[in-house]
């Protein structure tokens, strides 16, 4: 028996009833429609974990909320290790009505959507689906969850929606596909050389994707004494200024580690916010 001969997909000209391409396009359209009243979407990223990116995101969000009349939102895109909801004192449950899912309201009036609000305390991110061959679909499922956080949450009118990205660059790729109008990214590093190398990779990836690099925040840039306010070294290195120079972007702020009872805390965080606000497109 010889090879079977038949027409190919393109040669069969009837309708593709599934229209998977159109369904995906409709999903993108829903994201676009939902963000129509958001003036700018800005991602906060770092190639490295543990640099305090979520702390910086929450601090900037609270600060901007005092200066931006239409409001500020935070989408915690770190699905596996979400912390931004807690840092902003946002609590669930999330209310659903005919308009979509309403975000939680955190401190300063910042609206928040985070896995933190949906998972049991201390529980890892887990999906109900069969565990076998999870590696095949897990990334797709998480990209779908990010899309739903963007498209199905009633963000309303906002001056800025901050996206707190997880370490690495995978989620940035998902985000740039879903939000082609992304206004830019702020990179967060700590002073160390290890952090510089890791964050450089992430910034290069963002630049390759055509995403505007707004600037760099160097976190844990020294230790601020709670009594006298003097800054003592905490990490060796100057990753913030080196990254800023490499990419030709501003070093937005050197944020020292601040003890919780530091009297300088409000002023320092205010200065961080002012610097970021001035750099926002």
């Amino acid at each position: 028996m010889g090879p079977v001969s038949f027409r190919t997909y393109r040669e069969v000209t009837g309708d593709d009833r599934s229209q998977l391409g159109e369904q995906v396009a409709a999903q993108r359209e829903r994201v676009h429609d939902r963000l129509r009243d958001v003036t700018r979407v800005v991602a906060i990223m770092s190639g490295k974990g543990g640099v305090g990116k979520s702390f910086v995101t929450a601090a900037i969000a609270r600060g901007l909320a005092r200066r931006m009349p239409r409001g500020v939102g935070v989408l915690d895109a770190d699905l596996s290790s979400p912390t931004t909801g807690r840092l902003l004192d946002a609590r669930g449950p999330l209310r659903i009505d005919e308009h979509g899912v309403h975000p939680a309201r955190g401190s300063g009036g910042v609206v928040v959507c985070s896995m933190d609000l949906l998972l049991e305390d201390g529980a890892p991110l887990a999906w109900r689906e069969p565990a076998s061959e999870r590696f095949v679909w897990r990334g797709t499922l998480e990209a779908g969850a990010l899309r739903e956080f963007l498209a199905d949450v009633v963000w309303g009118e906002l001056d800025v929606l901050l996206i707190d990205l997880p370490p690495g660059t995978d989620r940035l790729d998902d985000l740039t596909e879903l939000v082609p109008t992304l206004a830019g990214v702020i990179a967060v590093t700590i002073p160390s050389e290890e952090s510089r190398r890791s964050v450089e990779r992430a910034m290069r990836r963002a630049a390759q994707a055509g995403v505007r690099l707004i600037g760099v925040v160097e976190n844990m840039s020294g230790y601020a004494c709670a009594r006298c306010g003097a800054i003592a070294p905490l990490h060796e290195g100057s990753a913030g200024s080196m990254l800023a120079e490499t990419f030709g972007v501003p070093l937005l702020y050197r944020l020292p580690f601040l003890p919780g009872d530091s009297a300088d805390r409000p002023a320092v965080l205010d200065a961080l916010t002012a610097s970021c606000l001035a750099a926002l497109p």
């Binding site: 449950p93 999330l94 009505d97 949906l118 998972l119 887990a126 999906w127 109900r128 689906e129 499922l141």
Partner: peptide, 14 residues
Amino acid sequence: ALVAREGAFVDESG
């Protein structure tokens, strides 16, 4: 699909 906390969402639609 998410293994979510009990009552993570409150559906009030309609």
